[in-house]
Amino acid sequence: MNAFRLAGDITHLISILVLLLKIYATKSCSGISLKTQELYAVVFLARYLDLFTDFISVYNSVMKVVFILSSVAIVWCMRRHRAVKRSYDKELDTFRHYYLVGACFVFALLVHEKFTFQEVFWAFSIYLEAVAIIPQLVLLQRSGNVDNLTGQYVFFLGAYRALYILNWIYRYFTEAKFSRWIACISGLVQTALYADFFYYYFLSWKNNAKLNLPA
């Protein structure tokens, strides 16, 4: 495993910790899209069907369990925890995420590595992850100003994607047989979605000002 990949996994983990910290410390999920969180839970459940069939490393298995449990816990908290539930910006979080699930599943039926149950669900999870951030970005755009922890959550998620791209470039040049076009192209699309957010994030960082997204 190269340094970019490790750094990518760690920033991914940090983003989840920042989100859990925000929910736990402030007992609030304002600014967080439940739809995006539900999509991530579906992404991890669909992708890690291989948890019991293909063993890669202890690191891999532990991370998979952490991602599944944390994403399910966040959804549970936002739906069931009394105080957290109250702070949910329901009227701002109106993106129709079921369409994304349907479209990604149809696309996975058409484009996959191999037509097997696991491979189709793996491709589906890759496509869905690429677009899962959209409801979150829409919510931030609508609410305009973004609190610190929410801004950092999205920043770390974006950093994770950017580091994965560096990881693929590194692997492309160092590994004899590197072919994972589904993951790479989806990853590029996913990272591109963050471009606008990153622009305003760096602007606010440079000016030492609160992060504001223009409507």
């Binding site: 990949r5 996994d9 991914h12 992708r47 291989d50 293909d54 890669i56 891999n60 991370m63 998979k64 991602f67 590595e113 191999k114 491979e119 793996w122 994965y164 990881n167 047989k177 072919s179 994972r180 993951a183």
Partner: peptide
């Protein structure tokens, strides 16, 4: 046939 990529990434 084509070798299916091992999904060693998260």
């Amino acid at each position: 046939g084509r070798v299916v990529t091992e999904h060693d990434e998260l």
